[in-house]
C-alpha cells in the first residue's frame, strides 16, 4: 500500500473554507460598484462609514454563526437588541455616571437570554427554532408591556460614544470606535474558531453523536453558542443605541437580516460547514448592497424583498453544490 505522508505538507497558508470565495467575490464587486455610484466612496471615509453602519450586523453575524454552525438558529436577537436598548435608556435615564454599570448589565442580560435559550434547547430538547421564536415573542411582549410602545429615559453621552464617535488617524481620517471594536471582535472570533472549542462547535453541527461518543460536552458547547449569540446582540445593541438612538423598533427584523447575512456567507443551515469570516463578509455584503441600492435611488421598501431573494438563492446555491457530488481532481 502506498503511503503518502498527509502531514508533511506545509499548510500555514490560511485556507478559504468551502463557500467563502463566492461571497468575497460578490463583496469585492459591490465595493467597486459603490465607488462608481457615489462620490462619498472616492475616499476611505466613505468605506469607514459603511463599516460603521455594518458593524452591528457584522457583530450579530459572529454570534449567529456560532449558533448556526453548531446546528441551531437564534431568532431572538432582533428583539433582544430592542430590549437591551430600551432597558439601557431606562436605567441610565440621562445619568452619565450610570453608564459604567449599565454596560456590564446589558452584556450580562444578553448572556442570560442566550443561556436560557441554550438550556431550554439542550436540556428540554425543544428545537432552537421554536425556543428562540418563543424568546422573540416574550421579549417583544415584555418591552411593549414595560414601555407602552414608547420607551422612556435617555442614553448617556458616554454610552452613545461607542456607536457614534470616532478617533482621528492620519491618512484615514476619523475612524469610528465601532470599527475598532469590530476589528477586535473579528480577531477574537477567528482565534476562537481556530482553537479546540471552536472546532468542536463545527464538529457538533456536523455530527453531534461523534462528539458525544468522543467524550465532548455537547450540551455545554451548544449552550455556549447561544450565550455568545446573546452577548453579540448586547454589543450590537450598544452600538445601535449610540448610532440610531432609542426606539422600540431599533432591532426590528434584525434576526432575519443576520440569518440572511450568515447564509449569504456560505454557512450551511443545519451546521457543520462555513467560516466565521465568511459570515461577517455576508453581513458586510448585505449592508453594501443596501447602500448601493440606496445610492441608485431604489426605495428602501425593497430591502426586505431583496433579502428574501438572497436567502432563498444562497441556500439553493449551497444545496445544488451538495446534491451533485463534486468530483475533485487529485482525490486519491
Amino acid at each position: 500500500m502506498t503511503t503518502t505522508d498527509p502531514a508533511s505538507r506545509p499548510s500555514r497558508l490560511p485556507r478559504l473554507a468551502d463557500g467563502t470565495a463566492p461571497v468575497l467575490a460578490v463583496l469585492a464587486v459591490l465595493l467597486v460598484a459603490l465607488a462608481f455610484a457615489g462620490p462619498a466612496y472616492s475616499e476611505p471615509a466613505g468605506y469607514l462609514a459603511l463599516l460603521k453602519r455594518a458593524a452591528p450586523l457584522m457583530i450579530l453575524a459572529i454570534g449567529q454563526y456560532f449558533v448556526i454552525v453548531s446546528g441551531g438558529f437564534d431568532l431572538s436577537v432582533g428583539s433582544l437588541v430592542t430590549a437591551e436598548v430600551v432597558i439601557a435608556a431606562r436605567l441610565i435615564d440621562g445619568d452619565e455616571a450610570a453608564t459604567l454599570w449599565v454596560i456590564p448589565f446589558v452584556l450580562g442580560f444578553g448572556a442570560l437570554v442566550g443561556l436560557v435559550n441554550g438550556l431550554i434547547t439542550t436540556r428540554l430538547l425543544v428545537p432552537s427554532f421554536i425556543v428562540t421564536l418563543g424568546m422573540l415573542l416574550v421579549l417583544d411582549g415584555a418591552v411593549f408591556l414595560w414601555t407602552g410602545g414608547s420607551p422612556r429615559g435617555a442614553l448617556s453621552e458616554a454610552f452613545r460614544t461607542i456607536g457614534r464617535e470616532g478617533f482621528d488617524v492620519p491618512l484615514l481620517g476619523q475612524v469610528p470606535w465601532s470599527v475598532l471594536l469590530l476589528a477586535a471582535l473579528v480577531a477574537a472570533a477567528v482565534l476562537f474558531m481556530r482553537g479546540g472549542t471552536g472546532r468542536m462547535l463545527v464538529a457538533i453541527g456536523d455530527n453531534e453523536t461523534a462528539v458525544r461518543l468522543g467524550g465532548g460536552h455537547v450540551e455545554r458547547l451548544r449552550t455556549l453558542a447561544f450565550v455568545l449569540s446573546g452577548l453579540s446582540a448586547a454589543v450590537a445593541a450598544i452600538l445601535l443605541g449610540g448610532f440610531a438612538g432609542v426606539s422600540a423598533q431599533v432591532g426590528d427584523g434584525l434576526e432575519f437580516r443576520v440569518i440572511t447575512a450568515v447564509v449569504l456567507g456560505g454557512v450551511v443551515l443545519g451546521g457543520g460547514r462555513g467560516s466565521v469570516v465568511a459570515a461577517m463578509a455576508g453581513a458586510l455584503t448585505l449592508e453594501a448592497l443596501f447602500s448601493l441600492l440606496n445610492l441608485l435611488g431604489i426605495s428602501g421598501g425593497l430591502e426586505s424583498a431583496v433579502q428574501g431573494v438572497i436567502i432563498i438563492a444562497a441556500v439553493a446555491y449551497a444545496a445544488s453544490g451538495r446534491s451533485v457530488f463534486r468530483t475533485r481532481k487529485g482525490t486519491s
Partner: peptide
Amino acid sequence: ALRQSVRDNALLVRRA
C-alpha cells in the same frame, strides 16, 4: 464529522 478535515477528526476526541 464527515465535512470536517482529517486533522479536525483526528483531534476530535482529544479536544472533546
